[in-house]
Design a protein around this nucleic acid. Structure first.
Lengths: 210, 210
DNA sequence: ATTATCTATAGATCTATAGATAATGC
DNA sequence: ATTATCTATAGATCTATAGATAATGC
């Protein structure tokens, strides 16, 4: 039998299977996050996963399957930080904690950010549904939290959605445009610590009511 | 003769040639800015330019040639606003004028921004040289201007390069991530006017010395 | 005469599968 | 016995060209 999917779901996957599936997903994230879905090839992914194309397609039956799986795995990690933005506690602490987490993620694990950047640049063909439902709901909730902070005079009056966009853009920039940042900065480590200070200054001062 | 490039450079291009070359570049910008170099096909560009693939390749001899030409044409438009950032005049006015211009460009002509986003996401293979030379020099100059404003106490002490990144990221977000913004906002026009207000509040307040 | 367009297709690349062979685990 | 890997290749897609035909401008 050459099709894994026909196996009964109670079968435990073998060690080799677990290891190879993970290797494939890791390799696929690297490749897809750089070149997007259409710009990536199964051969590139196979090479990076150190196996033949045919063998790779023994574990995942199509390029599209791999892409969807990688997107699914990455989506939750991408959303997690926003979930912890809570109405309780100091707005400035909450907003800065969120910003800092996103910044650190973008610097340390740029692949997730790039994967979405590619997907959304191309019109979000695969995750449109997700954006309309799950993300939209979460964002609406968090915008209400921010709006509440504004209404109670705790932060300056700005559009909550645009504030989120600003935070996303400013932090993910260090992942999505790292090729440019590396060229324009003389030292990447300095750049990143300065980034933290600069974002903190501008966002927190910027949101101070006056 | 089937190769235009063998023509003497003093030959005046025909009306049809001028029109078709322009149609191709317009179509190519649309396609490349969405799908990147590898993700785009000559067939897509030809269809959008309303001519056959063969005819398109009569005007530009390869996909790569078209891509390079489109990038070249777009680079100058992309840089122009930064050039006008000048040491004279009020720092806040200068910075806001720059930010506003970039925001408006991102909203009105998102293709240029998306083209670069795609190119840089993929590691800037074609424009690495340009980034190292022309852009680096321009950015260094403008960072010196910003640093001067900081040293004379006219704006808050932030890292000039990171400030530029913040402005680029925040404004180009509306081009690069428009697919997401359209889904998450209830009304695009409101979103964009709120964007202007929100960016103005945060960036200008954020840079106010205290 | 020159320029522009069309038809047909070569050759490269890419996804996916079939079928044989090797490795692994009871 | 089952699972994993390899070789070979079909069939789709894509870039680019050759060569014939049509349209245009002096």
């Amino acid at each position: 039998m050459s099709n894994l999917n026909k196996k009964s779901p109670t079968d435990k996957p073998s060690r080799i299977q677990v290891r190879n599936r993970q290797k494939i997903l890791d390799a696929a994230l690297d490749v897809f996050s750089r070149y997007g879905y259409r710009g990536s090839t199964v051969a590139q992914i196979a090479e990076r996963a150190e196996m033949s194309k045919a063998n790779l397609l023994y574990y995942y039956k199509s390029k599209n399957d791999i892409y969807v799986k990688v997107l699914e795995n990455t989506l939750s990690a991408w959303l997690a930080p926003l979930i912890s933005l809570e109405a309780d506690g100091d707005p400035f602490e909450q907003i800065w904690a969120y910003t800092q987490t996103k910044l650190q993620l973008s610097i340390d694990k740029p692949e997730a950010s790039r994967l979405f950047a590619n997907e959304i640049l191309q019109g979000a063909p695969m995750i449109k549904e997700f954006l309309h439902t799950d993300l939209k709901q979460l964002v609406d909730e968090k915008c209400a939290v921010i709006q509440h902070w504004i209404d109670t005079g705790r932060i300056a009056a700005v559009c909550p959605l645009n504030l989120l966009f600003l935070i996303w853009a400013a932090t993910q920039h260090y992942a999505d445009f790292s090729a440019q940042a590396e060229i324009l900065s003389n030292d990447n480590n300095t750049l990143h610590s300065n980034a933290e200070h600069t974002l903190k200054t501008i966002i927190l001062n910027g949101l101070t009511p006056r």
